[in-house]
Design a protein around this nucleic acid. Structure first.
Lengths: 109, 109
DNA sequence: TTTGCTTATCGTCGATTTACGATTGCAAAG
DNA sequence: CTTTGCAATCGTAAATCGACGATAAGCAAA
């Protein structure tokens, strides 16, 4: 029995869905906002700021990294995270693309 | 054992995450795009256009409706779906809000 | 090398998602 | 009233998610 059929959609749809999915959890939205505010590359500080354990935060970071929205660089014993400019440029493009496809405002059933 | 901690984030973060999550599947992105193109309220036509069964499409529509992005109205034996102007206005607001928080482009680790 | 700190990964558990067929529900038509 | 057709819901199964503690891995300093 097939449980997933993602392959049957366009590459753009999959890409947009992947970005959206990465943002589809409050913790990951919060992480992005934290990284945006203190644009310096925090790392374990995220754990302090979030009501989650270290391993959970690490998991969320991994997903954001997989979606290309976040970069991490090793800096001695700690890891330096920051938002990925290219990843967010693409995300913007995809989101704006979708929003641009929507009818203006005068639609109804 | 706690499996979900959504409660610990701001209302906006949760709201944005909910919208993103609704868009976090290629089928739902495809549905939104279909509804945007043929702004007329299709219904079972979606099933014809998508590589998914009727029940699966119905499930996805339910999730989009729960996220406030889609409206459905019964019209005789069929159901008429269309995008929700207010829902998308809010979605735009939330997404733009997040994108506006991000540093311009000159950031790096 | 050993210690200590930071982060990643592993293993686990329950909850949720994704998908389907089958069934139910409902409204118009006959 | 019964049939017909469309859509929602139910039940189910596999996969993924979300969270945690525990453990491993990496690096710097002692």
């Amino acid at each position: 029995m097939a449980t997933h059929k993602r392959e049957e959609f366009t590459a753009e749809e999959q890409e947009l869905a992947a970005v959206a999915k990465a943002l589809g959890h409050p913790a990951r939205v919060a992480i992005v906002r934290l990284l945006a505010r203190r644009r310096a590359c925090v790392c374990g500080e995220l754990v302090l700021e979030l009501p989650l354990s270290q391993s959970t935060v690490s998991q969320h970071l991994k997903e954001l990294k997989a979606a290309g929205l976040v970069q991490g660089e090793v800096d001695g014993p700690r890891v330096c995270y920051c938002l990925s400019p290219t990843g967010w440029a693409r995300a913007r493009q995809l989101l704006d693309g979708l929003l641009a496809e929507l009818p203006a405002a005068d639609y109804a059933c």
